[in-house]
Design a protein around this nucleic acid. Sequence first.
DNA 1: GATGAATGAGTGTTCATTCAT
DNA 2: CATGAATGAACACTCATTCAT
Lengths: 205, 205, 205, 205
Amino acid sequence: MKPEKIEVILSAACQLFAENNFQNVSMEEVAVSAGVGKGTLYNYFQSKDDLYFSILRFRLEKLLAVLEEAYSNRDDFLRNLRSLILHLYSFMSKYHYFHRIWIREENSLEQKNNTVILEMRNKILNLIRRVLLQGQYEKLLKKSISMDTSVELIYCIINYMPMNRNPKNKKNITIDFLMEILLTGIGIKYLDISVHYKEYKHEIR
Amino acid sequence: MKPEKIEVILSAACQLFAENNFQNVSMEEVAVSAGVGKGTLYNYFQSKDDLYFSILRFRLEKLLAVLEEAYSNRDDFLRNLRSLILHLYSFMSKYHYFHRIWIREENSLEQKNNTVILEMRNKILNLIRRVLLQGQYEKLLKKSISMDTSVELIYCIINYMPMNRNPKNKKNITIDFLMEILLTGIGIKYLDISVHYKEYKHEIR
Amino acid sequence: MKPEKIEVILSAACQLFAENNFQNVSMEEVAVSAGVGKGTLYNYFQSKDDLYFSILRFRLEKLLAVLEEAYSNRDDFLRNLRSLILHLYSFMSKYHYFHRIWIREENSLEQKNNTVILEMRNKILNLIRRVLLQGQYEKLLKKSISMDTSVELIYCIINYMPMNRNPKNKKNITIDFLMEILLTGIGIKYLDISVHYKEYKHEIR
Amino acid sequence: MKPEKIEVILSAACQLFAENNFQNVSMEEVAVSAGVGKGTLYNYFQSKDDLYFSILRFRLEKLLAVLEEAYSNRDDFLRNLRSLILHLYSFMSKYHYFHRIWIREENSLEQKNNTVILEMRNKILNLIRRVLLQGQYEKLLKKSISMDTSVELIYCIINYMPMNRNPKNKKNITIDFLMEILLTGIGIKYLDISVHYKEYKHEIR
DNA sequence: GATGAATGAGTGTTCATTCAT
DNA sequence: CATGAATGAACACTCATTCAT
């Protein structure tokens, strides 16, 4: 059973768009790379823009499905968090071409008023929030740090910490490292940073 | 004393490139916005690409100068770290147009073999590393976490955590929050995550 | 008894081509409008061009049949002329979509070397000529005006004088008016224009 | 003093558009024919459509200027009419490429809501009307025929009677012929067509 | 140096036509 | 015969770059 033609096109386009800027990829290239005629692209997508954002939409839909499925409702914050991070991380590693495009675009979504994609992004953030709420309930989270901040932090680390997402990238950070850093920071146990702040603050301007 | 014409051009171009993609900004627009003729741009920059990356180069040079100056060699890890983060953060807030371009491009620098910019990026990372080495010397950092990872983490958070970098963005995270999260994590004090991991690991695949 | 499929296609196409230029009508539109598949069009017509000129051909064939039938060989010039004009006019009013296409194309037929259509056009002109010859025989026509000129004049007036050919067009010229104008002009009876000409000619260049 | 570049482009384009349909003329061809670069066309005209209708606009402006100048306000209907027809005819003969385009388009102007061109067309018709009003004042026109009809008739004949507008066309009708036909018809003097009509009318339907 | 009119390579998109079903 | 998905030739239009002034 051969894969749907639309998936073939999306895959080919995704790789090309990952390796080059939007404007440096021509529809001709996409067609050749996908093994179809140029006109065929327009049977599936209304325009080059549509093709581009369809990649994001399709992949994010898939990601959301994966995360929804992965999220166990068990009352165990640490397990849930680990599962979430693991699946997010795995997905981004598997679809590393998509990942490249995603981190390039997600900071411009608001400019482009791309509400559809923005909503999907919010769904992911909400999933993270749900897990953290469980952690809050289990009293495993600091009260000093806001929920939103924590959500952003997790999302930020998963998306932007350089990991072994493509073969050329040797750097490799394990999930457990991420968990440890996230939950206990990089400082030694019992590190008290409060004192320093007080006296320091007066120096700055 | 009016600002150098080249600075006027860079400023105008920077804003335009921040608000639109590279390809959606025309040299004509840049010329109009900078109040010069189209041909004049080519007296200062070899090409559109050159103009674009000159923005990054000029701003990064400035950033490096700021950071070099800010970095006090005093033997105080926490002070140094805080100062570094503060200045990085302040710079990115002040030049938020540059910041937009920067986070859009920095993940593609290797693809483009843009060694000049890459080296400047490395210099920033090295500055962070220098500070962390002092922390290591002061035994304020966990041994379990690699230096590179920590460097990346700090850099990642400063660059990508959504902060009040432009007026429209209401979210605001203070430097102290960043310091706290970074050094002590989001978990409660004395949170032991090791047990969970051991038993959990066998479940995954 | 449903109409022939070919007639359905021609009708649909005729309306579309009348409302838009040749190039602004797509075969897809024609197919949809005719309620058939796109490929079916090519079972009946070799190409878009063929479809287009088939409309002219089919309609002109019909027109010629109508005129042949209408032309009574009775020895009465005025009756024959009136009958001819009436039928030409009626036909153009009934098939006003065809009429639009016809007046758009007929001046370009020679350029396109479309001999088939040109011959049909000539047949119409010959019919008019036949009627006028009878008028000449009945000594009801000026000798000063050439046969060809008169033929063209009649044809020109019927084709291009704005008449109530489509519902939106309020202007309405009756056949009798046409006849009157044609045969007696717009000047008053006994108007002598010859004197003016003579003296006037010397002024022009 | 070389002609304005815009006039060179319009001339070249006019000829090409006269010899082919709108869609069968490419901007490339126009550029080559005008001896300029393709991009230059877009410095003078916003689009291919704009170029096309600019031809009509420019030529009609010129025509209107010619007619305004030609129209002598002398109280002599026949002279004025002859002068008007002569100049209209001469203009169409001189700019026979424009003439081709004009007779192709003028019946579609309403469809295209091209108000600018429509207004210019109306100005021409109004000029003709002005002349005819003088004729009415001089009691040289039949009362039975409406002013509008006469205007249309004159316009129709000048535009559509095949004349020696291009070298290949051998047919040649003189202005005097047109005047004679127009004012006295093609029938013999004193031809009374009224009797025939009355008895004839009962036969038709 | 400064300018902006001229340029043409490059590309998104359309659509007549084909052909496997 | 009927269909419509697939195709690619063709073309309008853009815009970085040049260069005469």
